[in-house]
């Protein structure tokens, strides 16, 4: 039974986080958590209080095959099929859309060539509405993504790095609350592109990510490769 006395409940939450409850008591707490917001908050507080103790466990490399085991156990594993329509194909004529996206990149590239190269620093007259800087694992800025008022998203590489052989980078957007990322296309050589997605609208908090994919991009319309970069759009100048 979960006690009603606040003091007892908080101690129970602490012991649950510490791990000293026996199997039955721990299962009772775990079962009560989804319905009991106050208990959930107490557990979260204890997790935050004690979290630094996890540094006392010595890091250790897991068995090399562990990720493939995990992946095989995930729901939907082994089907090899997308569970949702690929974004490119969503509107019926996939190849036409792909062509129009390519045209969009070409336009973007020439617009940039025509003098937008310094748009971030040198042309603040019409500041970009939303932007994010994607960092490398070593916290070095690698990409700038910005959305202007027309809804166009521009990607620019700050520090171009070679992609590994036989792989391409693919740009994705994930609006808050969306159930799947939407492909914005493959990142062209040189790392600059502009795309005006029709299905989504840039908004603060929207995640932008770049993944590593096989040639031609993800075959299933959702990311398959590791996430190389990820960041959130926010109002320019707010961070």
């Amino acid at each position: 039974m979960i006690p009603t006395d606040p003091q007892e409940r908080d101690m129970l939450a602490g012991e649950y986080v510490l791990g000293t409850l026996d199997a039955r008591a721990a299962a009772e707490v775990a079962a009560a958590l989804p319905q009991d917001a106050a208990l959930r908050a107490a557990v979260a507080l204890w997790e935050a209080r004690l979290a630094p103790l996890a540094r006392l466990a010595l890091p250790e490399a897991p068995p090399p095959d562990l990720w493939s085991r995990i992946e095989a156990a995930l729901p939907g594993a082994g089907q090899g099929l997308p569970r949702r329509a690929a974004p490119f194909e969503r509107r019926g004529s996939g190849s036409a859309r792909r062509v129009s996206l390519w045209r969009g990149w070409a336009l973007g590239a020439s617009a940039l060539a025509a003098g937008l190269a310094g748009f971030i620093v040198l042309r603040p007259a019409e500041p970009p509405r939303l932007m994010t800087v994607l960092l490398t694992q070593r916290d070095q800025p690698a990409w700038v993504v910005e959305a202007d008022r027309s809804g166009a998203l521009r990607l620019a590489s700050i520090n171009p790095q070679p992609v590994e052989a036989n792989r391409v980078m693919q740009l994705w957007a994930l609006p808050q609350g969306a159930t799947a990322p939407t492909s914005l296309g493959l990142v062209p050589e040189g790392g600059r592109m502009t795309v005006t997605p029709s299905a989504i609208r840039a908004a603060p908090g929207m995640l932008i990510e770049i993944t590593l994919e096989p040639p031609g991009g993800s075959p299933i319309g959702r990311p398959t490769g590791p996430v190389l970069f990820i960041g959130r759009l926010s109002a320019a100048g707010s961070s």
């Binding site: 996890a54 569970r83 994930l174 959702r222 996430v227």
Partner: peptide, 26 residues
Amino acid sequence: DLLAAVAADDRSALRTLYQQQATRLF
């Protein structure tokens, strides 16, 4: 951010999370 992508069923984000955290968590 990776967790937000995982919440949208982004398997790549889960794998990247694993790659970043597996040694510590294991």
